[in-house]
Design a protein around this nucleic acid. Structure first.
Length: 854
RNA sequence: GCCCGGGUGGCGGAAUAGGUAGACGCAAGGGACUUAAAAUCCCUCGGGACUUUAAUCCCGUGCCGGUUCGACUCCGGCCUCGGGCACCA
């Protein structure tokens, strides 16, 4: 038996070099900074395009530079870093870059509150956070660092915006928004509290303003379909995205308006089987027919005005009372030709479907409530199998059943009728099959200052024009002063005054900026072409994408991840990329909790990573944060747990201090001289080969766990290994077995160091050097499991009687079933468990258990 | 309402393909070392019964049932916690 298949570094010592003495005390504050500097000077984690090696692109969601690192960041980056370093040890060409999602509102708030320009504030924060990240010892390729507020970055975004505009994927339209009349800006839904602006306290208006949109709906089918191919994404996130896209298949039905032969009302329904149950139509207050036919009706216009006052927040909608007004218009039912009233209803949304619905009060709860309130008739057209299930005096019946009162479709089941009625409507030209989505086009205009200027020009004569490419980037002026909260761009003629690229007369720039989600939609690709100043991306982006492992918070399940998937497809269609999806595997790390709730400034339960790193070192923080829970679950912060992690590292250190000279040196010498490979382990005593087997079992488990990113059990494996090696080191050993013993300790310990190095890179780096191993541990090969070592001469077999564990026996591993059975039945404990009962059956699983059924 | 996840000791969690439930760690208790403390090391640690000890037995992975020689694991039903979507027609 040989050790040959264990992957050792080629040489363990340089010639005539002996391991240096090691300090007794483990002091991370001394070693960590030195090691980080060393990595940086050697540019150890600089990613290069090497076609001969398999690439691995590992990426964390880049942070907003708020000015300080919090535990959520630490967890995020520790997970990704461990994965990146592990992949590197597997021999892959790893890229792990980092950057800054640098545009956004907090910078403007700081400017307003403290009078600091957003650019200054942001760059200062980046300085601070960069140093904090470096103190964690993350294996980043720092030369690729990107800040999205840099014109070199957002300039390409503007260029791309113009390409999209030329392709018709960018357009302007009026849209309803939350408008804060004091701040003179649009607010996001989450910035509206109880119908008032979160900062100004002003009553929010629903206002129609003109905004720029990206046609994400052109890609909706592909975005939905490709979710199925994302095997490395959790079902959870995929479901969230599917819900958000919200595909529904139904039919559009045409109702003619009585006395207005040229007017038609189109409605959308997914339940055409209830067509005969329609007793009125309900339309949205913003429906265009209000403009065309109802201008004279002051009461209707008044009601529509009232509806506009309603904030579009979710809570407001959820508690909203159903209200409506009869328009006096009548439509003709396309089949029965009955005249039906048309009502404006505040619960019908213009943005979804066609802004008009056919109301079936007998079979839809909303329509039911509305009908009851305004005394509109009910007509039952579906009879449930169980007649008692339907009591229309109390509520609508929304289940399936058999059709009644529906002419030729009577007697059909709901599902059958649905299909047949669609065919019928299409044949009669009264309706058409149609698909609708919850997903709407992406409004990207923000009336903010600190963002990418939208590169468009308004000319009174020529209309809306893109900025000529040679004039890009449209640079955001950084020296600004805030007069109140409004964007300074709106009052800076130096910025917005320009000339029309077509007629050369004075024209005005767009002063809105892009949603910051646009920057974060393509940064992962730009990391590949970080220093390319001639193009947005180059072939290096084709090499590195897709991202093999993406790590970030679940809160981005919809917005960021959907937008980035959309942008990836846009970039692909522009010829920059050649794969369909940006992120192959996605890991959503859980929250960091303190006392059971998410850490947050407002709750005052934060723990400052900086203080923890100063006290216990980055390695201990990394070990603890990865050990406390599996990456996807939320984890509870515990100071005591952190101390436990620190204790473990101290034990690791003192193992070297205690045993380097005593055993490890000799073991390494043997390994180096190849004498180790001549050792015949079958001649070693049971204790040694047993320990060796356990070592390789643990190694095998750690490999498996790393593959599934279950880092908490990788750490547990490292702890087990250290416990095992301590136990071995403290066991007396026979003179003739000394070689086995020393080799096993040295082999075991260098395996342990390599296992732990992706998680605790500093201490393992240091000890690796101290033990005289050549090269860097981060470039060492991941240790291989020795199959021979796993083979056991003796093994424990559990004996069950009727499925209950009764005894354990030590037997030779290659024992025949018959022998096993015989030994089992002779076992004293088994005998007493069986007593004199009749044995019905004996199940033998080799190497595992014997179950005797009596 | 619909759709996804979870529920295991005092706590965080482990159990790869259905095969010894509770690995690893934290906390707690006891002991060693020390003038003392810290640090470190050793032992105990799911609940219960019985016992001088060693042991032995019973119960136990949210609840009820099923499949199986055997279930934390698979199936059906329920309870519960977390998350997503939603006047979506």
């Amino acid at each position: 038996m040989v050790l040959g298949c264990l992957s050792y570094p080629n040489k363990f010592y340089r010639k005539n070099e002996k391991p240096a003495m090691i300090e007794e005390q483990y002091d991370p504050s001394i070693i960590e900074v030195k090691i980080q500097k060393c990595w940086e000077e050697k540019e150890l984690f600089s990613g290069m395009e090497e076609l001969s090696k398999e690439k691995f692109y590992c990426l964390s969601m880049f942070p907003y530079p708020s000015g300080h690192l919090h535990m959520g960041h630490v967890r995020n980056y520790a997970i990704a870093d461990a994965i990146a370093r592990y992949q590197r040890m597997l021999g892959k060409n790893v890229l792990q870059p980092i950057g800054w999602d640098a545009f956004g509102l907090p910078a403007e708030n700081a400017a307003i509150q403290h009078g600091i320009a957003p650019a200054v504030w942001t760059r200062k924060n980046i300085e601070v956070m960069r140093n904090q990240l470096k103190s964690l010892g993350l294996a980043y390729d720092w030369k690729r660092e990107i800040a999205t507020c840099d014109p070199d970055y957002y300039g390409w975004e503007q260029w791309f915006f113009i390409q999209l505009y030329k392709k018709g994927l960018v357009y302007q339209k009026e849209a309803l928004v939350n408008w804060d009349p004091i701040e003179q800006t649009v607010l996001a839904n989450e910035q509206v509290e109880d119908g008032r602006g979160w900062r100004s306290g002003a009553l929010i208006e629903r206002r129609k303003i003109t905004q720029w949109f990206l046609k994400i709906t052109d890609y909706v089918e592909e975005l939905l379909r490709d979710l199925d191919s994302l095997e490395g994404w959790s079902e959870r996130v995929k479901t969230i995205q599917r819900n958000w896209i919200g595909k529904s298949q139904g039919v559009e039905i045409i109702f003619e308006v009585a006395n207005h032969s040229d007017e038609k009302l189109k409605i959308y329904t997914t339940l055409p089987d209830t067509l005969w149950g329609v007793t009125y139509l309900a339309i949205a207050p913003e429906h265009p027919i209000v403009e065309t036919l109802l201008k004279q009706r002051t009461d209707v216009l008044k009601f529509v005005e009232e509806c506009k006052q309603i904030p579009i927040t979710e809570e407001a909608i959820a508690t909203l009372e159903k209200k409506g007004i009869d328009t006096g218009l009548q439509v003709i039912h396309p089949v029965t030709k009955a005249a039906l009233p048309v009502w404006i209803a505040n619960f019908v949304i213009m943005e979804y479907g066609l802004g008009a619905v056919m109301a079936v009060p007998a079979h839809d709860q909303r329509d039911y409530e509305f009908a009851k309130k305004y005394n509109l008739p009910l007509k039952q057209v579906i009879a449930p199998e169980d007649a008692t299930a339907c009591d229309l005096t109390k509520k609508a019946y929304t289940g399936v059943g058999t059709l009644i009162h529906s002419a030729q479709f009577n007697g059909l089941s709901s599902l059958e009728a649905r299909k047949k009625i669609i065919v019928f409507l299409e044949k009669e030209k009264k309706g058409v099959v149609s698909t609708h989505y919850h997903l709407r086009d992406w409004g990207v205009s923000r009336q903010r200052y600190w963002g990418t200027p939208i590169p468009m020009i308004y000319c009174d004569a020529c209309g809306v024009l893109p900025v000529p490419e040679e004039d890009l980037p449209v640079v955001l002026p950084e020296e600004v002063s805030f007069q109140g909260v409004a964007s300074p761009l709106k009052t800076m003629p130096a910025f917005y005054e320009t000339t029309c690229p077509s007629c050369l007369k004075p024209a005005k720039r767009e002063t809105d900026t892009l949603d910051t989600f646009v920057e974060s939609s393509w940064y992962y690709a730009r990391f590949a072409s970080y220093n390319q100043d001639q193009a947005m991306l180059d072939d290096r982006a084709k090499y590195w994408t897709p991202v093999d492992q993406y790590v970030g918070g679940i809160e981005h399940a919809v917005l960021h991840l959907l937008y980035a998937r959309f942008f990836h497809k846009l970039l692909r269609d522009e010829g920059f990329l050649n794969c369909d999806e940006p992120f192959l595997r996605l890991l959503n790390q859980g929250f960091v909790l303190k006392d059971g709730v998410k850490m947050s400034k407002s709750k005052g339960n934060t723990v400052d990573p900086k203080l923890m790193i100063e006290k216990y070192g980055a390695d201990a923080v990394r070990v603890f944060i990865l050990f406390a829970a599996p990456p996807e679950q939320s984890m509870e912060w515990s100071d005591a747990g952190l101390e436990g992690a620190h204790r473990f590292l101290k034990r690791l250190w003192s193992f070297v201090f205690q045993y380097a000279d005593k055993f490890l040196k000799h073991g390494n010498m043997l390994l180096k001289t190849q004498r180790a490979s001549l050792l015949e382990w079958e001649n070693a005593s049971g204790n040694l080969s047993q320990t060796r087997r356990e070592l390789h079992q643990i190694l095998q488990q750690a490999r498996y766990d790393f593959e599934r990113s279950q880092l908490n059990t990788v750490i547990s494996a490292c702890m087990k290994m250290l416990n095992l090696l301590y136990k071995l080191a403290e066991t007396p050993v026979l003179e003739k077995e000394l070689d086995f013993f020393n080799v096993l300790l040295a082999e075991g310990f260098n395996i342990l160091l390599r296992l732990l190095s992706p998680i605790a890179p500093h201490i393992t780096h240091y000890l690796w050097k101290k033990l005289g191993y050549e090269s860097w541990i981060c470039d060492a090969k991941w240790p291989k499991v020795n199959r021979d070592a796993l083979k056991a001469v003796m093994q424990t077999i559990v004996i069950q009687v009727n499925g209950k564990m009764r005894s354990k026996i030590e037997v030779q591993a290659d024992l025949e079933k018959e022998m096993l059975e015989k030994i089992a039945l002779e076992d004293e404990k088994v005998k007493s468990a069986i007593e004199n009962k009749e044995i019905k059956k004996i199940i033998i699983v080799p190497g595992r258990i014997i179950n005797i059924v009596v």
